[in-house]
Design a protein around this nucleic acid. Sequence first.
DNA 1: ACAAAAGTGTTTGCGTTACACCCATGG
DNA 2: CCATGGGTGTAACGCAAACACTTTTGT
Lengths: 234, 234
Amino acid sequence: MASFSQDSYSQHDKMYVATDCIIFGFDEGRIKLLLFKRRVAPFEGDWSLIGSIVKLEEDVEVSAKRVLEEITGLQNVFMEQLKAYGAANRDPGYRCVSIGQYALIRINDYDRKLVEKHGAHWHDIEEVPDLVLDHNQMVKDAQERLKRKARYQPLGFELLPEKFTIPQLQQLYEAIYQKELDARNFRKKVLSHNVLIKLEEKDKTSSRRGAFLYKFDHKTYKKLMKSGYNFEIS
Amino acid sequence: MASFSQDSYSQHDKMYVATDCIIFGFDEGRIKLLLFKRRVAPFEGDWSLIGSIVKLEEDVEVSAKRVLEEITGLQNVFMEQLKAYGAANRDPGYRCVSIGQYALIRINDYDRKLVEKHGAHWHDIEEVPDLVLDHNQMVKDAQERLKRKARYQPLGFELLPEKFTIPQLQQLYEAIYQKELDARNFRKKVLSHNVLIKLEEKDKTSSRRGAFLYKFDHKTYKKLMKSGYNFEIS
DNA sequence: ACAAAAGTGTTTGCGTTACACCCATGG
DNA sequence: CCATGGGTGTAACGCAAACACTTTTGT
C-alpha cells in the first residue's frame, strides 16, 4: 500500500531523495569511472560520485539524466537503475535515500570543458580512490551488475565508438570480465550473433596491418530480441 | 555527491519514501503472492502490495522487514531489494518514491490470524488482480528477478519447508521457470551439487510409495560459495 | 627482414538433453 | 491386483574450450 497507509500522510516523515551516477567509460583498454572532486565543505577535496537531489516534480530517472547531461553534455546515454541505498545513517548530515544509477558512455563523446569545469576526472576502475559516504559500495555494486549483465545483453557497445574493431571489442569484454579471452573463440562468438556489420574501412591505430571496423546493427538486434533471442558473450 | 550538493540542503525538496513488499509463497504446486485488500479510502476495496512509509530514523531494509513481520509474524525471512520506483506521478496524492523489496516465505510458517487481521490474502501468481498504483509492475519485475536469480542462487529453498522431497523441489522450480522439467535430469542436477541431505523419513502425502525427504545443507553451501562455486538448476 | 597485431578451422571433451522401465505401496 | 507417483541409467548431440600458423605492412 506504500503511500496509502491507513494513517494520514501528515503523520509521516519526509526525507531527501538523491540520485548518484556511476559513470563508466572505456579507454586505453581499461574501464574508467568518472569521479568528482568536491570543492566545498563538507568533504572538501574528497572524491565522490556525481549526483543530485531529486526535485518534487521530477522523475528519479530524469533527475539522474539531468545531472549526467550537466556534467558531460551528453544526452541519450545508456543508464539503468542499480538500486536504492537507504541506510538511515548513510549520510551523517541529513536523512537521505540515494538511488544509484549506472551509465555507460563513449569516452570520446563527452564535453571535456564541461567535465573539467565540474571538477570531474576519469579514474581507472581498478584504482578507485576512497569516496565519500557509501559511494565505494555503489561502484562495487555497479561493476558487478555490469559484469553480470554484459553476459546476456549487448551492453558493451554502449562503451565503444560507433565504429570499432573486433580486437577492441575483445579488449572491452576482457576488461569487463577481468579475464582474458581466446581471440579466435571470441571472434567466432560475436560474429555468430549476426549483429555486427563489417565495414570497408580499417583502423590502423594499433597495428601496421590494421583491423576491419564494424558497426553494431541495432535494428537486427531489436528484431532478434523480440523473437526471444539470447545474446551471449562468454 | 548526492546529498552534498554545493547548494545548501534547505533549498531542496523532501518527499515520502515508502517500501512495498512483494511476498512470494509456494503452495499446491503454485507460486503465490500475498496481497492486501484496502479497507479505507483512497482505493478502498482495491488490492495492493503491503508496504509502509519509511521513518526518519529507520533503514529502508528495516522498514520493509518491520512491515513483513507485522503482517506475517515472521522474522529472518529472505528479503532482497528489487529497485526503487520513482516516477513523479506514480502516486496521485503526494510525491512518494517507493522501494520494492521481494520476500520469499515458507507458506506454512506464517501467522494466519495476523494475516487475516490485516486483510491479506494469497493469490496465485498467474491470477494477480489489478493492483493500485504501479504495484502490478513491481510484481512483474519481482517475478522476473526471481526467475533469473533462481538459476544461479538457491532461492528455491526459501520457499519450501525445511524438509522437502525432490518432486516437491521440482514442482517449485517448474513454477518459477514456468516450464516443465525432466524428472531424471532434475534429480541428477540438484543432487550433483551435494547440498542436499537425504533423510530417513518419507513424505507420503502425495503418493502411496512415498518420497524421501531432504534438507538443504546451508553449511556446505556457504563453504562452496566461498570457493567460487556456482549453483545452477536449469 | 622483422616486429607486431589481425585473421583463420579443427579437434576434443564435457555437460545438457532426450528417453523407458521397474519399484513400492495403499486401497 | 492395480493405479499412482518415485526412482534409476545411458546414448546422442551440441556447444565451449583448446590450440598454431599465415597474413599484412610500416619501419
